[in-house]
Design a protein around this nucleic acid. Structure first.
Length: 750
DNA sequence: CGTCGGTGTCATGTC
DNA sequence: CGGACATGACACCGA
């Protein structure tokens, strides 16, 4: 008995603790208010995030286009339009940065040891990690940035490579969901298969050795770039020095390339092209007049004047958002095609670059060129470049810094390169040039986000089945939330209690006539059946009534009348049956009733218990009662009231348990819904990252240096700044900045 | 005979 | 401070 009751009590406590825990971790109200509305908007709104974007086909198109980058008969105009449309399509994803950030968290600290960059930039290495968890170079899965998001997603519980660790049923379920989504996206389940990815990497490696046509963009000759870096004596920042005189050689074609970039990432309405003039850059950096970063605001002639102007800042932020999502990329198919298996050796061979070949710091976008654009397109755009105002929709690309950006500003920009290059490439960079890519997620690591993610993890770990979630979602399509049913809420208790108190306070004006029905034998403990019939007759009925109606004790006021009705229906019974009946009724009597009858209490226990204090005292004063009788009456009253209180207490307890059960159900439903939303977001983020990645690769692949050679993604990367400009800088420099930025961020946190 | 749920009762605390 | 009430603990009872 004792253990049972303890069990009950402890169970209730555990129940409460469980709820409180859930309530703390699933602050549904907060979550829904602060996070979900925009998220839901993405899901339910007109966002294209959940439209099945055929970016695999898109990728094929891009690849096909990239096969012959130097072919002059390619339709650059339509290419630009296509890129522009893609970018705009990205914009239609409408995923605010902050919301995306919520999913871009929980980066493995080890993965950012060497490349932690607080900026939103996200390296492709991270993004590709999930797809390709193996490093083809050594076959060892490094803990570096290469696997960044693979682990992230694993942490999220969204994707767990089957080859890694134990998979719970929930993990498998979730993988199934993601797999189905990837099938929608054209990806096979092998993507989630660790071993298969390994094989795939090997195949890709072989393919890379044979140099696919798609690699032609980076099949340039020797790079004659120097790596002279100027160091800001004040800040210690390093930046590439620009050697005067080598600027404008191929500036035109490079500008075109940047215009392509601009067309790809339209973030400015300013169609001017000051960057065409090399001195402009120098002017932008008065103190570093001789050293200039390759810088260029990328502006789309397609967007100038005739097209709607863009809020530069807003556009850039949108782009940044997309960039951030890039790091979440799971399907890095394009990256694999272009880079996968391309280890450092291959890259070095392609570029005929010794690992330590100095890079000309003069490399700038002005010196770069779109190899395929150099002839036709340069002439096509030349006039426009000279006079930006002429820019029209007929112009394909225009490259120009939209404003004068100082070096500091420029170098405060965010490294784009890391976003777009796969782990293989990154490892190559590490081998050949040393610098490590920054951790683009460093700045995104917010504890609140971590909490959310951990919540998701918890949801998964707790055995949630996403499939069931979907079913639940459909079943409970209505808005979820912790809406407590007021009818079951503790408030109802107060109403019950209020009625109870009102009942007890409702004075009974009944006369004491019923006392006459109670005739006690004067001297015997034995019950005189004849005499007790009247007094006892109602008792079982009352007892039953009281038991069943304690929820509404107000009805108890009618009990005195029941006394009149209930007693002595045995007059026509045979004495024997009468005796049996009396015996039965006697058994139905409570102990207190027996005691009261024994003590010849002249009124009913009901009166004793339910009369208000004043009337009760008045009643007592009307009789000459012995001390024993008074004591018994007070005990009867106390026990009677306590009995009702106990009944109410138990009912409350029961209702509380029921409410808790329902709340748990509500929370589980909410949890299911949130988890389902999470899966949806992962899916859309993958799509967006794929798109951005494709765009970056296409743009970068078209850049040419003064020799008409493509830039090595191993050596250079595109970086974007908050002012909307996009610059091509050596990776080493980008990494340096990233580390510096990370340090600053850390200091700020302290 | 033990278990379990329901109930009554007591002690205690709170309002 | 006394009364009403709430509640944990325990005992009793019947299924």
């Amino acid at each position: 008995m004792l253990s049972l009751k303890k069990y009950f009590t402890e169970g209730l406590i555990q129940f409460t603790i469980l709820l409180s825990l859930i309530g703390v971790r699933v602050d549904v109200d907060t979550y829904l208010n602060s996070q979900l509305p925009p998220l839901r908007e993405i899901i339910l709104g007109q966002s294209s995030a959940y439209t099945q974007t055929q970016f695999h086909n898109l990728r094929n198109t891009l690849d096909g286009y990239g096969i012959h980058p130097k072919s002059v008969d390619l339709d650059y105009y339509f290419t630009a339009r296509r890129l522009l449309n893609q970018v705009r399509a990205l914009d239609r994803f409408q995923v605010p940065t902050t919301e995306v950030n919520a999913w871009l968290v929980h980066r493995d600290p080890e993965g950012s040891v060497s490349s932690a960059q607080p900026s939103p930039a996200i390296t492709l290495e991270n993004s590709s990690g999930l797809q390709d968890g193996t490093n083809p170079d050594n076959g060892v899965r490094e803990s570096g940035p290469e696997q960044g998001f693979g682990e992230e997603l694993e942490d999220l519980g969204a994707v767990a490579p089957p080859g890694n660790g134990d998979l719970t049923k929930e993990d498998i379920d979730l993988i199934d969901i993601l797999w189905r989504q990837d099938i929608d996206l054209g990806a096979g389940r092998e993507i989630f298969d660790y071993s298969h990815r390994q094989k795939e990497s090997e195949v890709d490696k072989e393919r890379s050795d044979g140099r696919e046509p798609g690699d032609s963009w980076r099949s340039g000759g020797n790079e004659t770039l120097d790596r002279n870096l100027l160091v800001d004596g004040e800040t210690g920042e390093s930046f590439p020095a620009q050697v005067p005189g080598v600027v404008d050689q191929t500036a035109l074609s490079l500008e075109e390339c940047l215009r392509l970039l601009e067309a790809t990432f339209p973030f400015g309405e300013n169609s001017e092209f000051p960057a065409a003039d090399a001195s402009h850059l120098n002017e932008a950096v008065p103190t570093e007049s001789e050293s200039s970063v390759i810088q260029s605001g990328l502006l789309s002639p397609l967007l100038t004047e005739t097209e709607s102007p863009f809020d530069l800042e807003q556009q850039w932020q949108d782009l940044m958002s997309i960039m951030e999502m890039q790091a979440m990329e799971v399907n890095n198919t394009t990256a694999e095609i272009l880079y996968n298996g391309t280890n450092g050796d291959l890259l070095t061979a392609n570029y005929s670059l010794a690992p330590n070949t100095p890079i000309n710091q003069n490399v700038s976008l002005h010196q770069a060129s779109l190899g395929s654009c150099t002839q036709d397109l340069s002439s096509l755009f030349s006039s426009e470049i000279e006079s930006p105002s002429v820019a029209s929709s007929s112009a394909l690309l225009q490259l120009a810094p939209d404003n004068s950006t100082g070096l500091n500003t420029t170098f405060g920009s965010t490294n784009l390169s890391g976003i777009f290059f796969p782990p293989q490439l990154n490892s190559t960079v590490n081998e050949t040039t040393g610098p490590e890519l920054p951790d683009p997620l460093g700045g995104l690591l917010d504890e609140a986000m971590l909490d959310e993610i951990s919540l998701m993890d918890l949801a998964i770990e707790e055995g949630f089945n996403p499939v069931q979630a979907s079913q639940l979602e459909e079943e409970f399509d209505s808005d979820s939330g912790l809406s407590l049913d007021s009818s079951h809420s503790p408030v109802s208790f107060s109403s019950s209690e209020a009625s109870s108190s009102s009942s007890s306070s409702s004075s009974s004006s009944s006369s004491f006539s019923e006392e006459g029905a109670v005739g006690y034998s004067s001297d015997s403990e034995n019950v005189d059946f004849e005499e007790t019939e009247g007094a006892v007759g109602y008792q079982p009925e009352y007892s039953k009534f009281c038991r069943m109606s304690y929820q509404d004790p107000s009805e108890l006021r009618y009990l005195p009348y029941l006394e009149h009705v209930g007693h002595n229906h045995t007059y026509n019974m045979a004495p024997e049956s009468k005796e049996k009946q009396s015996d039965f009724l006697d058994k139905q009597m409570s102990r207190d009733e027996h005691r009261a009858r024994a003590m010849k209490i002249p009124f009913t226990n009901d009166k004793i218990i339910n009369l208000p204090v004043e009337e009760f005292n008045e009643l007592l004063s009307k009789y000459q009662l012995s001390e024993a009788q008074l004591s018994l009456i007070r005990d009867i009253r106390r026990r009677g009231k306590n009995k009702m209180a106990a009944q109410n207490c138990r009912k409350r307890k029961l209702d509380t348990i029921l409410n808790l059960e329902r709340d748990v159900g509500d929370l589980q439903r909410d949890k299911s819904k949130l988890l389902r939303e999470k899966v949806e977001f992962l899916k859309s983020i993958r799509q967006m990252k794929q798109k951005v990645q494709n765009l970056y690769q296409e743009v970068f692949g078209r850049l040419r240096d003064e020799n008409g050679q493509p830039y090595s993604p191993n050596q250079y990367s595109l970086q974007y700044a908050s002012d909307g400009s996009v610059i091509l800088i050596p990776r080493a420099l980008a990494d340096q900045q990233a580390r510096r930025k990370e340090r600053k961020q850390k200091d700020r946190r302290k």
